[in-house]
Design a protein around this nucleic acid. Structure first.
Lengths: 304, 304
DNA sequence: CTTGATACG
DNA sequence: CGTAGCAAG
């Protein structure tokens, strides 16, 4: 019997998931079922990976983001948009001193102050850590860190936003291509988990208002095709794989206009898994209710 | 018997003022005695003028600054550092619609956004209103408004800060000179009351730490001499006139380091009165306890 | 709407 | 420390 990561037993474990039901108030959302702690063939989860676009690490810490980290207790925590130009000095002590996460890796934007930036925190020391995608022109904004584990790579990524008026769509497409090249090479060595804010809703089901957003950053044909091509590398959108037609499941809501209360959101945060690891997938969760940013965290459970 | 401005009778009216006594907690401050509502020869106060550096009008309104205005109910209210680039649009409606103050005059910085700016609000319509000191190079930052009343001019002024490292001390001295010229001419026509943030502590008694601030903006010999020269025009520092050696009486406390709680402050806000009106002086008050800005308001009572 | 950097005090 | 502007999302 594989080692267990906690005491709890889930009565619904192994049962098929319930599909959507309208909530009592606010906009429609999906039902948050209990975590599935085993694979379809009964292997138990032992690797938990979470990802969260924190929209400013320091503000997020003040809003008790760390409390959730303690409760979720992932083995690997990927963060995006930390907005710390100098992580050494700017990351709050409470974060740096978390006893469960002695292995912390930070990357920040060299060009713009207080912009972008990603991190990976690990309970166990990884075999190796690398920063960026190895292409000078795409590695100045602190957008990617890779940690190498025994059985896989884990990547924390913050894909560039195409901007109001799509002013940065061209750059975005260049980035998407470069990221693809990087991941293709990486995956040729070992399977991988790509975690983070891909800044694109893949399909109509992945945002509240697909009709009116076909020309908006995050839902242009170009960006959607970029994700298509990423999946073409043999990466699986784990959440959508488990819930092929589950609507109202979003990970981002703009702060404007009370969108979160109305569940007017976008699914921008993904946990992509190399197809070879799909048999090891236990669950892929969207922690819809967790507050602290304009994004919510997502969590992957693997029997690895 | 002169007309009365309110019902209240003050039991200590006509009595000599009590001088300082250390407070129970926090730093030493002066005892806030009741308002003196008559002149030394028994004429009753009928003109009340208040001045307040609000350090951002919109934030100050949110902090209920208007509530104090309603309670104090001055005939003329002078404000400084309103930080509204476009008063028409940016002054909160609650302010513009105050029924007691139908006559409102605003001036804002044309050069820097959200910087400086002064105002005068009147219960009664003034005979005339003018903006600035009539010198082009000193009238771009919204630093002075003059209203003409029957018996006097009332001026709301925000004197330029000399800045960290005294980077603007030269400009400050030019301003001080130009202000002097303006007031000299004004006073030749009618006595005046100069209200506002003169951005200088006149003497050692006017700030908590004179020793360590001799080279700080607001206490340089140059700035202090500027105020000397202003007084040389025949203007009386009304508060100091009434309390020649009263220490710990400040109108400004930096937000840094909890200075207000410790009464580590500066007396930067003044109510200067043409000497000819001195017989009409009833009282000059520092409303030390009134919150809403890093300055507190000051109030002048005249039998005019 | 919210973060963070900047100017100014 | 706090206000107000800005860029970015």
């Amino acid at each position: 019997m594989p080692k267990r990561r906690r005491e709890e037993t889930d009565p619904s474990a192994g049962q098929p998931k319930a599909e959507p039901a309208p909530p009592a108030e606010g906009g429609a959302t999906f039902v948050d079922t209990p975590d599935q702690l085993t694979t379809s063939d009964g292997q138990e989860s032992c690797l938990k990976i979470s990802s969260w676009n924190v929209d400013g690490l320091r503000a997020w810490v003040k809003k008790n983001g760390l409390e959730w980290v303690g409760l979720e207790s992932p083995d690997v925590l990927c963060l995006q948009e930390i907005k710390c130009t100098d992580p050494e000095k700017q990351v709050p002590a409470a974060m740096k001193e978390m006893v469960d996460y002695p292995h912390q890796y930070w990357s920040s934007s060299k060009s713009k102050e207080g912009y972008s930036g990603v991190a990976i925190l690990c309970k166990a020391e990884p075999l190796n850590v690398t920063y960026g995608i190895g292409v000078e022109e795409h590695d100045g904004e602190g957008r990617l860190i890779t940690v190498e584990m025994e059985k896989c790579f884990v990547v924390s990524v913050y894909v560039p936003n195409s901007g109001r008026g799509l002013v940065r769509l061209d750059y975005r497409q260049a980035w998407d291509g470069a990221l693809r090249g990087y991941l293709e090479e990486l995956q040729s060595r070992k399977p991988l988990v790509l975690c983070g804010d891909l800044n694109v809703a893949h399909d109509d089901i992945d945002l509240k208002n697909p009709k009116t957003n076909r020309k908006s950053a995050g839902f242009t044909p170009q960006e959607r095709q970029g994700l298509d091509q990423l999946l073409g590398l043999g990466l699986v959108d784990t959440f959508r794989h488990l819930h092929p037609s589950l609507p109202h499941a979003y990970t981002f809501w703009t702060y404007m206009g009370n969108c979160r209360a109305k569940n007017v959101g976008w699914r921008l945060d993904y946990l992509l898994l190399s197809r070879s690891l799909l048999p090891r997938l236990c669950d892929s969760k969207i922690r819809t209710k967790i507050m602290g940013s304009d994004h919510c965290p997502v969590t992957l459970l693997l029997a690895l």
